[in-house]
Amino acid sequence: MQIESFSTAPLQGVVPSYLYWEFSDDDDLQAFVANFNDLAQGYLDWFNQTPLAVYTSPFIYGPLLDWIGRGIYGISRPVLSSTANLRLAGYNENPYNTVSYNGLFYSTNQTASASNDDIYKRVMTWHLYRGDGQQFTMQWLKNRISRFVNGANGMDWPVLNDPPNITVSGNVFTVTSYDSVAYQALQLCYANSILEFPFQYQLVFITDSFVNDGGVLYLPIALSYPTDPTGLPDGAVWWNGGVISVIPGVIPDPTAPPLYFDFTFPPDLLALGGGNLPLTNPGSGTGQLWNNGGVVSIA
């Protein structure tokens, strides 16, 4: 994988160590010197493959990523916290025997965890990417969000291919996007004030996620899903008024990994298509997706 290019290639091989002539017939010393040269070459290869400033490199991870993030860019690994509140009160609002009559029950549960390397790198790219300029505009915001959601490990992304849906009302920007792990992380990062964003504006997030509608896979908003089957290839999925449908014509591969409702996000299914979904119910209650006569259903 090409991580960085050089106009002049860096040194590819170390200047080898060698024995003085009077020790050249000692096999043990020759082996020692050979191992020393191998170790030195390994260090050189690592430094050539791991330009420290390029944090998106797959060779930069864990403590090394923390050292680079803090030492070079001044960005610490984000700590993501979330709070869940439970309130039980009100007449005829809760099942019997869950709260005393005319009583109030309130609890708060808070969790906090350090982000993984992938999210850390996406946060760094949000702060460090200069191609969008430093002037806040609608396009700047779309680019930042699209790059965060789609650019694995902070890599760049062709943002114009898949821009998020954003509406504006006053100083509130409402972002609508498909449910995904990265989109959930984006919301947590914003809620924890980790992302650079103009203080005079506010972001509101709407998550477009799959719904189990009586055993049928349903998506509330089409966004980038095709809404017309015309011209779609065999096996492609499309948005049929909310119901996810499959273009016929593909014989499913029995070795294809199964897709499950709980673990499949809308962009994943759009990319994979529905051609390899089983044509018969794989087992009631399993939650596996299957092709029920052209309609994606949930077992």
Rank of each mutant, 00 (worst) to 15 (best):
P257E: 02
F105A: 07
N97K: 11
G133L: 09
G62W: 13
Y55A: 02
Q134K: 12
S107Q: 11
D228Y: 04
G170E: 05
I206R: 12
S113F: 06
L160H: 14
T56A: 02
S284L: 13
T111Q: 13
A53M: 11
I68L: 05
S113T: 09
S24C: 08
G283R: 05
W46P: 01
L259R: 03
P226I: 02
P233D: 15
S24L: 06
S82N: 14
G62F: 11
L11C: 05
G62N: 15
S107L: 13
N37K: 03
D228S: 05
E196Q: 15
R77G: 05
Y218P: 07
P226D: 00
L128V: 06
C189F: 00
A299K: 11
F199I: 09
K121T: 08
G62S: 15
W239D: 06
Y61K: 14
F173C: 12
P226R: 01
N143P: 06
W126D: 06
D38Y: 10
V243W: 01
S81T: 09
Y96F: 12
Y55S: 03
F36W: 14
F59C: 14
G285M: 07
G241V: 05
R122V: 04
F197H: 04
G273E: 13
L52H: 12
V181Y: 07
N276C: 06
W238I: 00
W67T: 14
T230C: 13
V211W: 11
N85P: 02
D66H: 00
I119A: 00
G74A: 00
I145E: 00
D213N: 14
W21Y: 15
A34S: 15
L39P: 01
R147T: 10
G13T: 15
D262T: 12
D253R: 12
P252A: 07
R122E: 02
I244K: 00
S7E: 13
V15R: 08
F23L: 14
A53S: 14
V250W: 03
E4M: 07
V175I: 09
D28I: 13
D268W: 04
S17M: 15
Y190N: 15
I3W: 04
N161L: 14
S107Y: 05
P58S: 13
